[in-house]
């Protein structure tokens, strides 16, 4: 007789008729002479019937009401968090965070007046530098205007615009 350990694990498949013909014969031969495995087989059948016959419960009404409330609330949260997760938004968020931190430091700084004055000074220095560059550019433009006719005559003479040939 085959040992019980070798047969036990085949019993659930035997009930489901999911064994090869040889395995089936081995199980049936064993069962004929083993009351313990016959008892186990009967217990397996009872267990299967009990599980299949478990009544299905109706969910409580309050639960369904809560479930109906989920979509509206959660979709908005999802849409916003989804927007924040976009790669394009992340550098903007980082820059905004840095500006916010700098602004926070500025507002609580004890020497805020000095910072104001320094910023004002640097700003005006910058403005002055830009105006100087602008003035220089203007003077170059006017000096170029003075020499414009001379330059154009020279260019015509050397035929750069294709007019020198006729003369």
């Amino acid at each position: 007789m085959a040992p019980c350990e070798g047969i036990e694990h085949l019993l659930p498949s035997y009930l489901e008729e999911d064994l090869s013909p040889q395995e089936r014969r081995d199980v049936e031969t064993h069962l004929e002479s083993c009351p313990a495995c016959r008892t186990l087989l009967a217990l397996l059948e009872e267990t299967a019937l009990s599980l299949a016959d478990m009544p299905e419960l109706e969910p409580p009404h309050s639960l369904k009401e809560k479930l109906y409330c989920i979509p509206a609330g959660k979709r908005i949260t999802f849409a916003f968090s989804d927007f924040l997760r976009r790669p394009m938004v992340q550098p903007v968020m980082a820059a905004a965070s840095i500006l916010f931190i700098l602004f926070s430091i500025y507002t609580v700084h004890p020497r805020r007046q000095e910072i104001n004055r320094a910023v004002d000074r640097e700003f005006h220095r910058g403005v002055r530098a830009v105006s100087q560059v602008y003035a220089k550019a203007e003077s170059w433009t006017s000096s170029l205007g003075e020499h414009r006719d001379t330059v154009l005559d020279t260019l015509k003479k050397i035929g750069l615009f294709g007019q020198g040939k006729g003369e």
Partner: peptide, 30 residues
């Protein structure tokens, strides 16, 4: 909801727990 609630109840074995779990599963679903 009935299918998920029953799955949760049979798995967890507690009616209150199954209610919470069903809710969490539907939040995850959304």
């Amino acid at each position: 909801s009935k299918k998920i609630f029953n799955l949760a109840y049979r798995f967890a074995g507690s009616y209150e727990e199954a209610e919470d779990l069903t809710q969490e599963i539907f939040v995850k679903l959304h």
